[in-house]
Nucleic acid binder design. Structure first.
Length: 323
DNA sequence: GCGACAG
DNA sequence: ATCTTGTCGC
């Protein structure tokens, strides 16, 4: 799904003479958790002359920022050109010009429903058959995702990489939809367990990136996150809904079951793997591989696709964007 | 010195 | 995540 296109269509619905808010757009997308992503997507608006991001203001009626050489001043100028009065960086008669009646099918709400539906396919009983141990990570440059998987098979270590275009911003709770298109190619033949940079069942739907990817790929997965998405830490356990769903192994290592593995076995596996401060080396390697892939691809001009652009990188510089 | 809604 | 190489604030 191209959430950017969906989003810019929503922004384009705000009629001349009216404004909307970051929160209202997040609500139209289907989840208030997307409020920051709203600001981000506005800031990279590729077509500011036709997608009126200057009509997006703060929920208290303040005009807010605008990514433009003239900044807020330009945002105010465009709003006044629409017939909106602004005094002291505040919309006059804010309630009367506030537009929230978006025509939308709330895509994030639907994705959240999909998560809850597919969670029924999740198994937390350990069922690991093969002996591979693998890890994946993704690096980004704008819309380009650079995925790397490090696979330990017997005494051999293989690295696989892939480049994919991503049109889904980072939104807490929806990491799968951003990262999976990039990792699916590099993890397809794994016969064993896969470590994923993110959470498993430690998630609002009990179905985080690692769990969702495991179900989608049909392989055992373990979520290893570097920071807490939700829940209460009690001792080593992370409690959600009164139950331990994850284990804190280190300041930057939170383990939760992804798919086809129990919490205890997920923790046991991670503890046995080569690690630094209990953070698995395989994940660090995957991170480095994804990062160096990004740097080398950018150094080479982004691959064959960009050859006709010569040495230029094809910078997409937004002219006017709200932020 | 550590936080900050996974990345 | 990326941007940077020193940052604002509790």
């Amino acid at each position: 799904m191209d959430l950017y296109s969906v989003f810019y269509d929503l922004v384009s619905q705000v009629p001349r003479g009216m404004v909307t808010t970051y929160g209202a757009l997040a609500e139209a997308l289907g989840d208030m958790a997307a409020a920051r992503a709203v600001g981000y997507m506005l800031s990279v608006n590729p077509d500011p002359e036709n997608v009126p991001c200057y009509r997006v203001v703060h929920s208290d009626g303040k005009v807010g920022k605008y990514t433009h050489p003239l900044g807020t001043q330009e945002k105010v100028r465009r709003l006044e050109n629409d017939g909106i009065r602004v005094e002291g960086e505040r919309i006059v008669g804010f309630e009367n010009v506030l537009f929230t009646d978006f025509h939308t099918d709330h895509p994030l709400r639907r994705l959240r429903e999909e998560q809850k539906r597919k969670r029924a396919m999740l198994s937390l009983e350990t069922d690991i058959t093969g002996n591979d141990v693998a890890a994946v990570d993704v690096s980004y440059h704008g819309d380009e995702a650079f995925a790397a998987a490090v696979v330990q098979r017997g005494s051999e270590v293989h690295v696989r990489t892939a480049v994919a275009r991503v049109r889904f911003p980072y939104i807490p709770g929806y990491l799968f939809y951003r990262e999976f298109p990039a990792i699916r190619e590099v993890v397809r033949d794994i016969d064993g367990v896969l470590l994923i940079d993110g959470n498993g069942v430690l998630h609002p739907s009990g179905f985080g990136f690692a769990s969702q990817a495991g179900v989608e790929l049909g392989i055992p997965t373990i979520g290893v996150a570097k920071s807490l998405l939700m829940g209460q830490v009690e001792g080593q356990n992370v409690i959600v809904g009164g139950r331990p769903v994850a284990r804190v192994l280190g300041r930057h290592c939170i383990v939760s079951p992804g798919h086809r593995v129990s919490l205890e076995d997920a923790v046991g596996i991670v503890r046995l793997l080569p690690n630094r401060h209990l953070y698995p080396m395989l994940l660090t390697m995957a991170h480095r591989e994804a990062n160096s892939l990004r740097l080398s691809e950018l150094a080479h001009g982004g691959g064959e696709r960009h050859l006709r652009e010569g040495k230029e990188q094809g910078e997409q510089e937004g002219q006017g964007n709200a932020h």
